[in-house]
Design a protein around this nucleic acid. Structure first.
Lengths: 336, 336
DNA sequence: AAGCGGCATTTTATCGATAATATAACGGCG
DNA sequence: CGCCGTTATATTATCGATAAAATGCCGCTT
């Protein structure tokens, strides 16, 4: 592969290896004629630095990893927002995935893997506070996601509860009284969906209405297919409902399918709102009302914290909750 | 970071560094008592191997890169299919992105970056045959995508023309005569959209119908937003149409939005078919007829070719065209 | 009892770069 | 004219592992 070594360039240019290194890294000044000879040799031989050797010696990779549960949908979109921010600093971004399993997440955080990167952004889904606490590394890390995390980690998360409250309150305001919390759960092991359930509950309480636990409908996975199946069951069960708060837009899309096949009209018979405001939300008729998770803001905040850590900041970690806002579209009655 | 070195473990266990290495890599046999002492020392010190040093010495990273134009939608989904196949072999998969620019793609193929990986899967979008021909490396590489590539590279691509033909013929068969080719182009610089245009044309010819170039409607980017805008223009222009073949499902989703806002009913007034069969396609009412690009098959074929190359195969490269099939749903009249 | 083969372990050399330190060349100044 | 501080380049040591060769030890053969 990198058949040409720095030593070959040095020989070709009639200088020492260090001079070549100095020319390429602009560390120590090199006289112009020498410099030109070195550059010519580099060109002639097609030399490219061995990044692995540099890494071993210099301890730097100029690479940041974004470790996600899976590559598609939400995380792919966020990754596309993060990439330019990292590249603007002259670093590379690579994605790794964990399959959302705690073992894989721990493996990704193993000292061994971390060595490859100057910094790591980790979307935590499976690990709990204790497991995270066991991660001992001085590597710059910023955690993303809804789990509870140890104080010493920088952490960026969404205002889940507030977002769910906003969406639910909006549907209550426009006449719904029996709103399913699709994909929500009472299981506090999954913070995202239980936080959003709490927001859904609060909207009811705030409106002076009762909360009915039967309206919390979990899904087996956060996919459209599982959501569609879960909602089909509800429809078949005769539990009456006139609104659906879906825990994510992907789940909401499953709901759209189940509602359509049962002849339930959106938003006339059933109002529907999702969470994340992924691209798709504006295009699925009649437009999906969704809580904008502010990907861009999350990306900027997280990268900012990571940058600070990589620059050597040693102050206390920050725990940022980025604000959300409701984007109203045709799937609720306030929409166009 | 990796503060604990193999030498520390060796000292703790009272053996040489090589013995530790042999225990961990199971290269040479080690007596059980010694082996146990080493393992105990590893545990006690929390040692983890320095992968960078191993890479430098052993020339192996056990990591494969999938280099994509962008992280979201199609590529994210394919990546999720590829990951388990790579992991099944005990390797890691990482994603890098190129922003679809030729410079970035070349940079990704630079000798320097390639060193990090044992093999590379590259989705080619921007590079032409000549540029690819300039890539000189013996690193295992498999190219994915619709560009024309030099013979020496393994290459997997979809049956674009056939897929477009299938979708268009299906709509003709069910009564459409004026079918837009949304997102298609006459510009042969973009093979994917021109190949699909050719398939669209062939369906017309096969049916004994004339091809009208006005029905080829390009989009500025392959996004739903651009597609919606392009279709709005067509609707406003009074060019009559009764079918839309969208060059991708994402483009089709934009079409769904434009049709819905103009009150055009799918499939009664306008039939619609997309390409890729992404997850979303089954859930957007009334279900999007789409050409199944057979992600799974593409992933398996590509990984198979890569595996063979990484195992040392030196025979001629293969150029595989994976078959496609039409998945009929409610957006065309043959559907449920 | 000397010699030899096999196994467990250690020694040595190396992967390809960079940080720190050393040396050579040169010009200015008293 | 010789001493000294700069500047340019070269040497040396090192990052942390692994491949290959060397050593030491044991029992077994003859």
């Amino acid at each position: 592969m990198a058949r040409v070594r720095m030593a070959d360039v040095a020989r070709e240019a009639g200088v020492s290896v260090m001079t070549v290194s100095n020319v390429l890294n602009e560390r120590l000044p090199v006289n112009e004629p020498t410099r030109a000879r070195v550059m010519a040799a580099v060109e002639a031989l097609g030399y490219e630095v061995n990044l692995t050797a540099r890494h071993l010696r210099a301890g730097r990779t100029d690479t940041v990893a974004f470790i996600v549960p899976s590559f598609h949908d939400y995380f792919g979109e966020v990754a596309d927002k993060i990439a330019p921010l990292i590249e603007a600093e002259g670093r590379h971004l690579v994605l790794e995935r964990t399959s959302a399993s705690p073992e894989h997440e721990m493996a990704a955080l193993s000292v061994a893997r971390l060595q490859f990167y100057d910094g790591v952004l980790l979307s935590v889904v499976g690990l709990d506070r204790d497991q995270l606490d066991r991660v001992r590394t001085s590597k710059p890390i910023v955690l993303l996601g809804e789990r509870d995390v140890p104080d010493r980690f920088n952490h960026v998360r969404l205002a889940n509860e507030e977002g769910a409250r906003l969406a639910t309150a909006h549907m209550i305001e426009h006449g719904s009284r029996r709103i399913l919390a699709l994909g929500c759960t009472f299981d506090t092991a999954h913070m995202m969906s239980s936080d959003r359930r709490i927001g859904w509950e609060r909207a009811f309480r705030d409106a002076g209405l009762d909360v009915d636990a039967r309206y919390v409908v979990p899904v087996s996975t956060y996919t459209s297919a599982a959501a569609r199946d879960a909602l089909r069951h509800v429809i078949a069960s005769d539990l009456p409902f006139d609104g659906v708060f879906a825990v994510t837009d992907v789940v909401a899309l499953g709901a759209v399918a189940a509602l359509a096949e049962s002849g339930l009209r959106v938003p006339v018979d059933v109002q529907l709102a999702g969470f994340d405001n992924i691209d798709m939300a504006s295009f699925v008729p009649p437009g999906l009302t969704s809580v904008d998770a502010n990907h861009e803001g999350v990306a900027e905040t997280a990268v900012g914290l990571l940058r600070r850590q990589m620059a050597g900041w040693t102050g206390p970690a920050e725990h940022v909750v980025t604000p959300v806002r409701l984007v109203v579209r045709g799937s609720t009655r306030g929409g166009a």
